[in-house]
Design a binder for these strands. Sequence first.
DNA 1: GTGATATAGTTCGATGATGGAACTATTTTT
DNA 2: AAAAATAGTTCCATCATCGAACTATATCAC
Lengths: 156, 156
Amino acid sequence: MESSPSLELVHLLQRFAQASDRYVESTGTLHGTHRTDMNALAVILGFEREGSAPTPGDLSRALQLSAPATTALLDRLQRLGYIQRQRTDKDRRVVCITLTDRARSDGRAMFMPLGEQMLKLISRYTPEQIEFLGEFMSQAISGVDAAREANESQKH
Amino acid sequence: MESSPSLELVHLLQRFAQASDRYVESTGTLHGTHRTDMNALAVILGFEREGSAPTPGDLSRALQLSAPATTALLDRLQRLGYIQRQRTDKDRRVVCITLTDRARSDGRAMFMPLGEQMLKLISRYTPEQIEFLGEFMSQAISGVDAAREANESQKH
DNA sequence: GTGATATAGTTCGATGATGGAACTATTTTT
DNA sequence: AAAAATAGTTCCATCATCGAACTATATCAC
């Protein structure tokens, strides 16, 4: 049962995802927020970074949650004072989700240690290497999503 | 609000973890098994790859689950015909978890499309590059776990 | 060695995150 | 103008999860 370097890399990617799950689960417990709520914060922060605000539908897709579960999630986040919901004028069915300052600072506190650690690791690499790693991760993300979508469309 | 290549890489790593979560969630739904059960299968397969069999305690740590949740998880997997539990002779408090053939084939079916996709991506790289990427991912895993442990020990 | 303490796993009961079905309100299509 | 599609919510039932308490085994202290 020998393992090629390629297969080893596949397993390392999987182990990285598992370790990330552990981080979220553990940090969520320490902060008294649930896994899903933490992931939601991360996703909304990601949208903000791109300069946009997600809708419940965006969140539903990003977290693979049903519509009712997403509503419940947003209710929780709202009760925590983490988000505001705003009907859009363009299409009055749609709701836009924006973070409060408190959500940003709490979210930062949750993910900061992880980010710091990753930056520390990355700082040991050259700009060219960082560029290379970014290219790879970017394609890995596309690959994971492609594999999922292939599964989903196959089983109709 | 410009973003350095280093910070971008951090975000790509995070997005990779999120995409992996989506894959597990989606594939789990298609196969009628829950997220946690899928992750548990992946972890047990990982232990098998290393030539060992995990205990409930190992699983509990790997999945960040409480002891009762782990027992419930193992009950589910056993009811599905996916695992066997065996008390060890060395220490009779400990239980060893082994997969059935069915679990291996079902687990393979669940993760195969993802693995294939990743292998396809990796095949475009040279052995030296693959080695380099493996090094990086390995350290990233350590970094994530270190960040988590730092959080955990800080909040005692 | 024997009693005290720690460790591995389980059972029990309660909480709450989640999904399916049905609903409202808007927009788009025909 | 009617029909169909889309976005989000409410209601209800299920079940994964945790804390507390328990059993059994192993280790530690003296």
